[in-house]
């Protein structure tokens, strides 16, 4: 005969202990060493041909960010299927998800610009030049998948220009006030993204390209001739990319892969631990 146990108490989830100021694991390099990114103080341009694995890298960064206690997400994805997977988690975290709607995208970017101005005012008031982890500031990371959709495909030319101007402002000024921009596109040529915006990205991830010129557009002029040519990445190894970061020399990296099931698991967890009694943006099945 089994003893009668009372119902177990509701599990109290433990808040994530990671911080956006921690290095983000993105995969392994060709020497077998783990590769990390310092995301807060850098902007990342993620580019390459379709199917190269851009979204794999983005998912790693988003996954890490959502497990951080100091993260406010802003996700723009006209395809819905990449960053859209995190829609519920973004809402539960107090962030925003924008689909293929440039009007909403512009509204969100204008709000971000105001937040940025206020943050700089705060820094000026405290005699500081940038935010530190000890400030306990929320890092507002702006993830934009298929940047070209907003800058060259949809909306009026005026809207596209405003979108580019706002993103350029965020990339230029957002670094010190804990508002990094992570943008993905296929080929960041000048007809898609102005050079004045493209060259502001400190980190560049070049996935497989169709020409050495495309590789140079992403990494910078001359790297293809120096042997760092994203065209040479095998099409049979998606997720491999050249990353040019702080060292100044491109490194070949294989991005860690998150399956759909793992992403759903992360979304469930993130949404669960951030639920509260006041607002129930997403109903829980259990």
């Amino acid at each position: 005969m089994h003893a009668a146990f009372p119902d177990p108490p509701v599990t109290i989830p433990v808040a994530p202990s990671m911080s956006m100021f921690d290095p983000v694991f993105i995969g392994i390099d060709e020497f077998g060493n783990p590769a990390y990114l310092d995301l807060v103080y850098h902007n990342l341009l993620d580019a390459g041909e379709p199917g190269g694995g851009k979204s794999v890298l983005i998912q790693n960064l988003v996954g890490h960010a959502f497990l951080c206690h100091d993260f406010t997400p802003v996700l723009l994805d006209p395809k819905w299927v990449e960053l859209g997977m995190w829609m519920e988690a973004a809402e539960a975290t107090g962030g925003v998800f924008v689909g293929p709607d440039i009007d909403k995208g512009l509204r969100v970017l204008r709000r971000l610009q105001k937040v940025m101005d206020r943050r700089y005012s705060w820094l000026v008031a405290h005699g500081r030049r940038k935010f530190l982890p000890s400030d306990l500031i929320k890092v507002i990371a702006i993830f934009i998948d298929e940047l070209a959709y907003y800058t060259a495909t949809t909306g009026t030319p005026e809207q596209q220009k405003e979108f580019i101007a706002l993103v350029r402002d965020l990339v230029a000024r957002g670094r010190a006030c804990a508002m990094p921009v992570i943008a993905a596109t296929q080929r960041p040529s000048v007809d898609i993204i102005p050079t004045s915006l493209r060259d502001l990205f400190g980190y560049r991830a070049a996935f497989r390209c169709t020409t050495p010129n495309s590789s140079d557009i992403i990494l910078g002029h001359g790297w293809a001739s120096a042997g760092f040519n994203a065209q040479a990445i095998s099409p049979t190894t998606p997720g491999v990319f050249y990353l040019i970061a702080e060292g100044g020399i491109p490194h070949l990296v294989k991005a860690a892969y998150l399956t759909d099931a793992q992403i759903h698991q992360l979304v469930d967890y993130v949404t669960w631990i951030r639920r509260n009694g006041d607002q129930v943006p997403v109903p829980l099945a259990a």
Binding site: P13, L258, Q265, L266, D268, A286
Partner: peptide, 14 residues
């Protein structure tokens, strides 16, 4: 990816 390694398994699905 190691992101899901330490997640609890009894998380209710949304």
């Amino acid at each position: 990816s190691p992101l899901t390694e330490d997640l609890p398994t009894d998380v209710p699905a949304i």
